[in-house]
Nucleic acid binder design. Structure first.
Lengths: 187, 187
DNA sequence: CTAGGCGATGTCAGTAACTGACATCATCTG
DNA sequence: CAGATGATGTCAGTTACTGACATCGCCTAG
């Protein structure tokens, strides 16, 4: 595992995860991570914009959601389109449940990481809204449907990560959305 | 304006705002800010946990919301309680509209500041939810009402900051909430 | 087979955010 | 007037992050 071995980015991510679990986020320096991956600090920053980013690597969530929104049947409502995209994203997350739970724990301990997580969710909302607009959904509706979907995603993720291991995440999305509808109507 | 003059924290905030407007956030160092306020870098960090925080100083928003939620009439629904708290918060913000708009522009230019803004919104949601639980509102309902309120607040703020100067912000909150109800129901 | 191009990595020096330890100053209190 | 107290200054250090340039290994044209 050194210099010219393949998948430097992946090795950095794995090294980071291990170290964060072993000794915590802030007691791990970027130099530590790079060393474990057989690389240098400078190279770390070529692959990840900053230290936090190594925990939020995949654009795959955004990419998959974009695709799902684009390919959704024509007769669905915006919120239904978003819901389906979010449900699919859940499957991606829960396919490595142990890591997802570790990750959730690391993030929960560090406000700076929670910030990044929220920012990523914001990005997802932007992506979803953009996808809806592409389909001709009016701006306001697109934004709102996207934000609601992401809100449901976030809350479902929290419940799933904090709940029993046997619970499945995807169904929680519709549960949360139904609750949202109930609460929003209680004005 | 030096060393032992009063309100060091306020002077730092004002210096920071001026410099951010004049030359941008990242071309302004903490040393610059401290110098303009007649203080040292070290003192800056005694008043603000980090450079970004100087733009997000007030706990007054959270404090006011807490109070509003605690004192709301007993017969209101959770979402209505939250809505009123958020509407009141709008008045606080729009009482210095020029600065609020400058601030919104600075934040819009810097992803790191958007992160912090979202984190603050998350904190507000936590505060609102906590206040509702104090009143005996069930956990799930409290969380959802709070998140919806904050979502409406965020979107209303965006529209207000981007819109005409004569527009009032508070009424936008209910507009957004009504839209949310409409979109959420379209499943 | 070799020369050169090219992308990924290394090296080095530098900036600036942030922190801990300790000294100093102004004010308040007895 | 002396000591307590809280705010500030000073200094040294760590670490995240960046720019400029050198080096390495592979790939391709000739």
């Amino acid at each position: 595992m050194s210099r010219w071995d393949p998948d430097a980015k992946g090795r950095l991510a794995m090294a980071a995860r291990e170290l964060f679990v072993e000794q915590g986020f802030d007691r791990t320096t970027v130099a530590d991570i790079a060393a474990r991956a057989g690389l240098t600090e400078r190279t770390f920053f070529r692959h990840y914009a900053d230290k936090r980013e190594v925990l939020f690597a995949g654009d795959w969530l955004a990419a998959r959601m974009t695709e799902d929104v684009a390919e959704a049947p024509a007769d669905l409502t915006p919120i239904e389109i978003v819901t389906r995209a979010v449900e699919n994203a859940c499957d991606g997350i829960t396919s490595s449940p142990d890591w997802s739970r570790d990750r959730a724990r690391i993030i929960a301990d560090h406000p700076e990481l929670q910030e990044r997580e929220l920012a990523k969710m914001g990005m997802l909302a932007g992506v979803l809204a953009g996808g809806l607009r592409e389909r001709g959904v009016p701006d306001v509706t697109a934004t709102l449907a996207a934000e609601l979907g992401v809100l449901a995603f976030r809350l479902a993720y929290e419940r799933w990560a904090g709940g029993r291991r046997s619970t499945r995440m995807a169904p929680l999305v519709r549960v949360v959305l139904a609750e949202i509808e109930g609460v929003a109507g209680g004005a």
